[in-house]
């Protein structure tokens, strides 16, 4: 069944409005979630702040095939592996001859 043009115009405006309102509300919800999570992170910040000063790494030769102990701050395992591979490649040395103490994301 054909739709009157006035109804079509109203439906189009209403539809666009609904999408906007829906996503603005969603934006508010996500912003709220972000604020809550950031606040929670802030509350627990003193605890993880301690390891910001890298603990003294165990000295001595690394075991063959191992990159030694490493501490990661805000860096995922995959990113860390990629970074270590890049450094090893740039230096032209095998990964197990290098010792990485920590990798930290600079913000």
């Amino acid at each position: 069944m054909k739709m009157p043009i006035s109804d079509a115009a109203i439906a189009a405006l209403l539809g666009y409005g609904v999408v906007f309102v829906g996503l603005v509300l969603l934006m508010a919800v996500i912003t709220l979630m972000g604020k809550v999570m950031t606040a929670k992170k802030g509350e627990t910040a003193p605890a993880p702040a301690a390891p910001a000063v890298p603990a003294p790494a165990k000295e001595g030769p690394a075991a063959p095939g191992s990159a030694g102990d490493i501490k990661l701050y805000d860096v995922g395992d995959r990113e860390a592996a990629m970074l270590m591979a890049i450094v090893a490649d740039k230096l032209g040395k095998p990964l197990n001859e290098l010792r990485f103490k920590s990798i930290k994301e600079v913000k």
Binding site: I5, A8, A11, G15, F20, L23, V24, L26, M27, G34
Partner: peptide, 27 residues
């Protein structure tokens, strides 16, 4: 998107064509 929720406004704005084409189709 989580880092920048205001992106949702752009996602909403870019649905303009959906409703204009719908109106055009009725015409």
């Amino acid at each position: 998107l989580i880092a920048s929720p205001s992106s949702l406004l752009l996602g909403a704005a870019a649905q303009l064509g959906v409703f204009l084409a719908m109106f055009g189709a009725i015409l």
